[in-house]
């Protein structure tokens, strides 16, 4: 409680300076609203929804930063060609993974809890609320090329990028970067077999 009151005192003090900057949270709200507006159109087929969502979300993501952070240590040692190859496959994998879950959506809204900005980084705390579950989702953003872009999503304390990095790192240590790329290619191929639109 005390913490909360302090937050407000603090907020009031900084609210003016905050408005002078572009708002990362507005970006997130824009992204989420545009995705929800697609999902809520019952007349669209699952495939139509997927392709529309995919088109809308990509502009909000910083793919370069996501790829770099996922490879971590191994990004430095990779050739330009490998980096490009990885980024391409990684985007396809993310698409396949998250677009496949679109069918699971059956209503729900997003509450925006808190936004924190420090330099060119921002953390936005949100909560997805539907009838029977609440999932805290945190977006980590970076300010680049005059806009705020998402580079990580933390769901119930589990960072998506850290999860990928930890798994991919292990695979690279065993099979090398090329081994990882081959595995990713197989996966993407399998996913495309399931949904022909991609």
């Amino acid at each position: 409680m005390k913490r909360f009151v302090l937050t407000w005192v603090f907020v009031l003090g900084f609210v003016v300076s905050a408005w002078a900057m572009p708002q990362p949270q507005e970006q997130i709200e824009g992204m989420i609203n545009s995705v929800l507006s697609v999902l809520q159109q019952d007349e669209l087929t699952a495939e139509e929804k997927k392709s529309q969502v995919s088109g809308r979300v990509q502009g909000f993501l910083n793919i370069a930063s996501m790829s770099e952070r996922t490879l971590g240590l191994y990004w430095q040692g990779a050739t330009e060609e490998q980096r490009q190859h990885f980024s391409d496959l990684f985007v396809k994998l993310l698409e396949g993974t998250y677009l496949n879950r679109i069918d699971d959506y059956s209503g729900g809204t997003v509450q925006y809890l808190k936004q924190r900005v420090k330099g060119n980084k921002a953390i936005i705390d949100t909560k997805f609320v539907s009838e029977d579950l609440e999932i805290p989702v945190q977006y980590k953003m970076i300010y680049e090329n005059d806009s705020w872009q998402v580079f990580d999503m933390v769901i119930e304390g589990v960072s998506m990028i850290r999860n990928y990095r930890s798994s991919y790192g292990e695979i690279i240590r065993k099979d090398g970067l090329d081994g990882l790329l081959a595995l990713m290619e197989q996966k993407v191929f399998a996913m495309q077999g399931e949904s022909p639109t991609q």
């Binding site: 119930e156 304390g157 999860n163 930890s166 798994s167 695979i171 996966k187």
Partner: peptide, 22 residues
Amino acid sequence: VRDSLDPYLFVRAAYAQRRAAQ
């Protein structure tokens, strides 16, 4: 299982992170 390259590694990482957060 369907989406990750190695489900074992994915589950392990998620478990570690989730518990750390808790």
